[in-house]
């Protein structure tokens, strides 16, 4: 009797482990069957997640308020100095903008980025997975709302990520802090490069691919670049001008291997609503 129990226990354990490994192999290999099942179950679970997310929002807000209050005290001094610096920059920018507007009128150009033209749709965040390995969120809009994989996702603060999976009524967004995320970026001084999360630290983005002559300084703003004019046949998924973050430091400045560290504007851990840009066109 005892031997039978032991044998049964070991058989069940072996079966579960083997099932997990088979699923893992099939899923990692991109098996269509597993993906279809996952999509179907995701459709069913999504409304439950949505309801739970709405119901638990006051609880999250309360917890977030406590954390934000503690953080705010620490950030107060640094934000004051940043405000003073930004005021000075704003005065310069306003002068530049008025000059720029005159030039635009003169040249008849009006290619200013307009979100309305990009057919944005608001989506509610239903669930979050923000481990170091998988930085994703689930949203309550899917293919029925016109979402497709690859579409950019943003908030009022800046770039959030891109749509990486869609079911009929829900979707998954890979955040810009996920290790698989890449975006072509440009600093406020015109330096361009490829931005990706720093290895092992998703709160820090790294811009590489810069030339030795490119000069980037702490505090420069970084935004999406859009399509490289020299590579029009490879359009970027992201329209130009979406804010990404601020430069916090440069490794090996003035060399071909220099890397720019960028702190994202968006706090990916406290997202309630995002906007998906459904018409990205050629990303120009």
């Amino acid at each position: 009797m005892y031997d039978k129990t032991v044998r049964r226990r070991r058989a069940v354990l072996a079966l579960l482990v083997i099932s997990s490994i088979v699923l893992l192999t099939a899923s990692f290999g991109g098996s269509g069957g597993v993906s279809s099942v996952q999509r179907g179950v995701f459709e069913v679970i999504s409304p439950i997640q949505d309801g739970a997310s709405r119901a638990l929002k006051p609880f999250r807000d309360l917890f977030g308020w406590v954390g934000d209050t503690l953080d705010a005290k620490g950030q107060n001094a640094s934000l004051r100095s940043e405000r003073d610096r930004l005021r000075r920059e704003l005065a310069d920018e306003q002068l530049t903008m008025s000059e720029n507007a005159q030039l635009r009128r003169q040249l008849g150009l009006n290619r200013k980025l307009s979100l309305d033209q990009l057919d944005p749709v608001q989506a509610r965040v239903q669930g979050t997975s923000t481990s170091l390995f998988s930085q994703t969120i689930n949203i309550d809009k899917g293919s029925a709302d016109g979402l497709r994989t690859g579409q950019p996702v943003m908030t009022g603060a800046g770039l959030v990520g891109k749509v990486s999976f869609v079911a009929s009524g829900a979707g998954k967004v890979t955040l810009l802090t996920d290790s698989t995320f890449r975006v072509s970026a440009r600093t406020s001084t015109g330096v361009t490069g490829i931005l990706k999360p720093a290895s092992g630290n998703p709160d820090d983005l790294v811009m590489g691919g810069l030339a030795a002559r490119d000069q980037v300084t702490k505090g420069d703003m970084v935004s999406t670049r859009g399509t490289d004019p020299a590579a029009r046949d490879l359009p970027s998924l992201f329209p130009p001008g979406i804010p990404i973050g601020t430069v916090t430091g440069v490794d090996d400045p003035g060399t071909d291997t220099q890397q720019v560290h960028v702190k994202p504007f968006v706090d990916v851990r406290s997202l309630d609503f995002v906007q998906v840009l459904r018409r990205t066109g050629s990303g120009t």
Binding site: L24, V41, N138
Partner: peptide, 17 residues
């Protein structure tokens, strides 16, 4: 969990087993 978060299936199952 792997299904709800659209992650690689079987990963969480294996560690939770």
């Amino acid at each position: 969990v792997d299904t709800a978060l659209v992650q690689t299936m079987g990963l969480s199952s294996l560690v939770y087993v």
